[in-house]
Each structure stands twice: as structure tokens, then as C-alpha cells.
Amino acid sequence: MIQLLKQSRLAAFGTAVALCFSCNSESMDLAKSLASSYDYHDKEVTLTGEFDSPFFMFRSQNSTTIPMAFAVKSHAFSSEKISVSNVILPMGADKNSVVLEMAPDQKQYALKDFNIYDENGEKYNLDTHPSFKISGKVHYSEMDKPEAERSADNFAYEIKDVHIVKD
């Protein structure tokens, strides 16, 4: 009986590890596809990963959004990651938003300066590296141009109307 219980626990652990290694490969494949095709133009996508500090310079004190980066890994123990940039979040302490808390004389920001609010309004500091599932609508700026003027290899996009769920 004890041997059967051990085998059962080992099987359950093995299944959990296999799911952990395979569950986020879809997010990795999607992140690669976003950067290499227009297949997801004006479609909603879902990714699992961690928010990262954005790659931007402040344009104005009046900005109402922040284009956050979102790091997608194939699994929790992987060092390989793809950074999805331009995940557009509204600034503020509302649901599905971000707050950047910097001192007035602070010149550089770090992950500890960002707080994310999920779809329930729960606050998470990014320095703790929480995992999230986000969904939002993809828009490629190239698709705003007349078809004859579009570049075949400019896959710059934004993800807007983002919903954030703690994973």
C-alpha cells in the first residue's frame, strides 16, 4: 500500500512537472509569431509570464499609459525568454493598470518602482517577480498604412485593452 502511494505521488509530481514545462511553450510560440507575422492583427491574444520594466524614456509628465515589457519563458526553470514589448497599460491604481512610484529627484527606475494592479484591483510589486496571464488586443501599426506602402518585415505592434490575472 505504501509503495502504491509513493508511486501515485511520484506520478502526480511527474505530471505537474511535465505540465510546467509544456504549459508556457504556447506563450513562447505566440510571442515568436507576434514578432514575425501579421496573423494576430486586431485579434486578442493571451500570454503567461512576468512584467518587466519598460524600454522607454519618458515623453511627458502628462503620459496616461506606460508601454510595459512582458517576459515570456518556456517554463519556470528556463533562462530562455522572449520579451514582448509595448504591452500598453494605463497609469493609475485602478484594475489592469500600472503605477510607477519614483522620487521627484530619482533619475532611473527599477522593477521595485512598479506596481501592477490585476483585474480584481490587487496590487503586486514587480520586484517580487509575480507571474501573470495577460490578454489583450494586438495592433500592428504597419497595417494602418495603405497596402502598397506596407513593409513586409515591420512587425512593430502594441497590445492594448490588457486584462491582467495573477497566475
Rank of each mutant, 00 (worst) to 15 (best):
L4T: 11
L5I: 14
K6T: 07
K6Q: 13
R9E: 10
R9C: 02
L10N: 08
A12P: 00
A12Y: 03
S25Q: 14
M28Y: 11
K32V: 02
K32A: 11
A35R: 15
A35H: 15
S36D: 15
D42P: 00
D42G: 00
D42W: 05
E44S: 07
T48F: 12
G49V: 12
E50P: 00
F51H: 05
D52Q: 13
F55G: 02
F56D: 00
M57Y: 02
F58A: 01
S60P: 08
Q61Y: 05
N62F: 07
T64K: 15
T64S: 14
P67K: 01
M68A: 03
A71I: 11
V72I: 12
S74H: 02
H75S: 02
A76Q: 10
S78P: 09
S78R: 06
L89F: 10
P90R: 08
P90T: 04
M91S: 05
M91G: 00
M91T: 02
A93H: 09
K95W: 01
E101Y: 09
Q106V: 08
K112E: 14
D113E: 13
D113M: 09
D118G: 06
G121I: 12
E122V: 11
K123L: 11
N125G: 09
H129R: 12
K133I: 13
K133R: 15
K137R: 15
K137E: 13
E142P: 01
K145T: 05
K145Y: 07
E147Q: 05
E147I: 08
R150T: 04
R150P: 11
A156L: 13
A156D: 15
E158V: 07
E158A: 08
D161Q: 14
D161W: 05
H163W: 02
K166E: 09
D167R: 07
D167M: 09
